[in-house]
Simulated scan of single mutants.
Amino acid sequence: MEVYADHAATTPVKQAVIEKMMEIYATHFGNPSSIHSKGRDARRYLDEARRTVAKTFNAKPNEVIFTSGATESNNLAIKGIAYDQMNKGQHIITTKIEHHSVLHVFEQLEKEGFDVTYLNVDKSGMVDLEQLRRAITEETILVSIMFVNNEIGTVQPMYDIDEIMAQSNAYFHVDAVQAVGHLDIDFQEFHIDAMSITAHKFGGPKGVGALLLKTQTPLKFQQLGGEQEAKRRAGTENLAQIVGLAEALQISNQHRDEHNIHLMNLKNLFLVTLQERSVPFELNGSMIDTTGHIVNLYLPFIDVETMLTLLDLSNIYVSSGSACTAGTTTPSHVLQAMYGDDDRAKHSIRFSFNEQTTEQEIKYIAMEIHKIYHKFKEEA
């Protein structure tokens, strides 16, 4: 059996999305900025995709900026707001468990003279709300907190954070990459000024994403050249992939509640099956404030590299954490922040599923982990 269990890293492109994209490549290939009929035809599809994204999140079409993905969206939002507002203050806030496309930007801004507060999290990966409340001052211009953590699946208490942000003048950016398709996100309901998404996390193509930006949010734009995206992000729009993003977004919200129930059932089945087989493990994160698609396990009997290799030999494809740190031996900064323990991070594996994952596949993964455990137990 072959099991792909690394959906938090990237998801297979859905067939309906591929068909929609191929239609654009074959027939609607004009430049959306051209004024001739082929250009106007392409513009129609671009505008429709923008409306689809806006409607999904209860945003306005002019609040959607198409980008190359979450990394660009995060960079654009954080740098754009920080540089625009730096004359009003240079204090910015994020958490210790953000994706590196957020953390590395804050680290760079810190080198440039910005004062950065990195919020702590507890052992479930939940942000310290009191620390956030105390940290915000009149000098704070930006707060960036991810909705769902990409390594452990913890969902941040966004309503509580929103109440705190509503009492400040700081702008609020949210990395919502892992939340799309799992949670209902109302861009107008929350005091979110900027929000990042990327298509390949919910059945769309790689290389395309979006930044949702509230109408009155100031931003110093980073990419100059043309007047695309209402002069906010220069460069010819990647029309086929943008249409693919919109199509995948629509599909991801169909039967979302049923899919979430299925994923939580799979998560429970996975943990129970490992327990029944007497495999020693601990869950990294929470079983309450979480999505069902990510399960991060501490397996004390084996190191990450060995486990990944042995699972791969059994045709089970998983990861140790963020795909953006693949190939490095650096322990997960997320688990370090949660537990203060490098050793735990060196023995933890992330499994991530989607609505197509079956109970049979889950049981197969548990069975192979059981085999590996007993092999190492016998050799010990």
Results as ranks from 00 to 15, higher is better:
G226Y: 13
L211D: 13
H255V: 14
M158L: 11
G235A: 10
P157R: 04
L219W: 09
F147W: 14
I261V: 09
A194I: 01
Q216F: 08
E276S: 02
A210S: 14
H182S: 11
K206P: 02
A176S: 14
D193Q: 07
H191S: 15
L245R: 05
V208N: 03
Q228H: 09
Q254L: 15
Y171I: 00
L212A: 13
S278P: 06
T217D: 07
E276N: 05
I251S: 00
I145D: 00
L249K: 02
A194S: 15
L183Y: 07
K231W: 09
D257H: 10
I251M: 04
M158Y: 02
L245Y: 06
G209K: 01
L274I: 05
V174K: 00
Q254I: 15
I164K: 11
F221S: 11
D162G: 09
K206H: 12
P218F: 10
M146Y: 03
E229Q: 13
F202L: 07
D186M: 06
G204S: 15
G181A: 08
S252A: 15
F187P: 00
A179E: 03
L224R: 13
A210C: 12
R277H: 09
A234P: 06
K206Y: 08
I197L: 13
R233W: 08
I251Y: 08
M146N: 04
E247K: 11
T198D: 02
F270R: 04
F202E: 06
K206T: 15
E151C: 06
T217I: 11
I164V: 14
L269G: 14
K220T: 15
R277L: 12
I185P: 03
F172N: 01
G203A: 14
I261D: 10
V180L: 09
F147I: 06
R256E: 13
R233G: 08
L212C: 11
Q228W: 02
P218R: 10
Q167H: 11
R233C: 13
L266F: 02
I251E: 04
E227W: 12
H173G: 02
Y171K: 10
F172H: 03
F202G: 02
Q216G: 13
N150E: 08
G226F: 12
T215K: 11
I242K: 04
M158R: 01
D162A: 12
K267N: 13
G181R: 01
A230R: 13
D193W: 01
A166W: 03
S144R: 04
Q178R: 14
T198V: 03
